[in-house]
Design a protein around this nucleic acid. Structure first.
Lengths: 137, 137
DNA sequence: TTCCAGATGCAATGATGTTGCAAATATACT
DNA sequence: AGTATATTTGCAACATCATTGCATCTGGAA
């Protein structure tokens, strides 16, 4: 498991206290997507604008990726070492729990048999599941 | 094919000029999701707040449903007479074209074989496809 | 220690969506 | 048709979320 400092070094980013705090928060939630507002409430004293820029930088460097789960909230998740989400979602899926509101990244949901109308070119598939998660059941 | 007036009458809504203009715009795009801003730009003189409220009313009455296509934009599509989207998405899928930005509702995309981690309860499946549509190819 | 590109904080601005209330109007009733 | 009323609309104000420009600060290398 990489530490925040490892990740920053690998990405040619300066190891500032703020970035380390943000990354640490992500590392604590390895399978859950993180809401922008979760971060705002949990990383203590900070500047909201800096958070936006930090997340944008992390996304550009491939450290995190945006998670689309059907909600209006902007969410991000830590990319794993084999993360290809920012290139193509493949069979990546997200599960959003209706009770706790958490969104989990699922590595695979099985085979999808997509049939498109003719002349449509398929490039990316995103599957959003919702229901009740293990914890809330 | 129902007219705007038919739909309003069926839904116990007053037939105001504004509502008819909005519904007419939806009827012109039977398979595409409509962005909030598309409406703002295409239905002429109007009040932004009234549009929000109109769309909300239409959604509550089951005339339109919100379309989640992965973009940040709020989009709506006309419900067909057999529309169950506001109840459960079933195998409903949306295709978003990267070139023209339009989102199309696809009635079926084939069989999905979803395998969830144990103890997860699946309630709703939303599939978002993106690529190039017939027109743009 | 010094230097400077990169990172941060602040102020201002823009986009988007909501609420309260008064004026306008669609519809039902006489 | 005329009237009453509940609904609908438009305006003002407000709340939230995100972005940009710029001055200041700082991590990291010389």
């Amino acid at each position: 498991m990489s530490t925040s400092v490892d990740i920053l070094k690998r990405s040619d980013l300066r190891k500032t206290p703020f970035r380390i705090r943000v990354l640490d928060y992500f590392i604590l939630q390895p399978h859950a997507a993180v809401r922008n507002t979760d971060l705002e409430q949990n990383i203590g004293d900070f500047d909201r604008i800096t958070l936006y820029r930090t997340l944008k930088t992390f996304e550009e460097k491939g450290i995190i990726h945006e998670v689309v789960d059907g909600s209006k909230d902007q969410k991000y998740a830590l990319c794993h070492h084999d993360c290809k989400v920012h290139i193509s979602d493949g069979d990546h899926a997200h599960f959003s729990c209706k009770l706790c509101g958490n969104t989990y990244c699922l590595d695979s949901v099985g085979e999808l048999n997509i049939q498109l109308p003719s002349n449509y070119v398929l490039d990316k598939v995103q599957v959003m599941l919702s229901g009740t998660c293990d914890n809330c059941k």
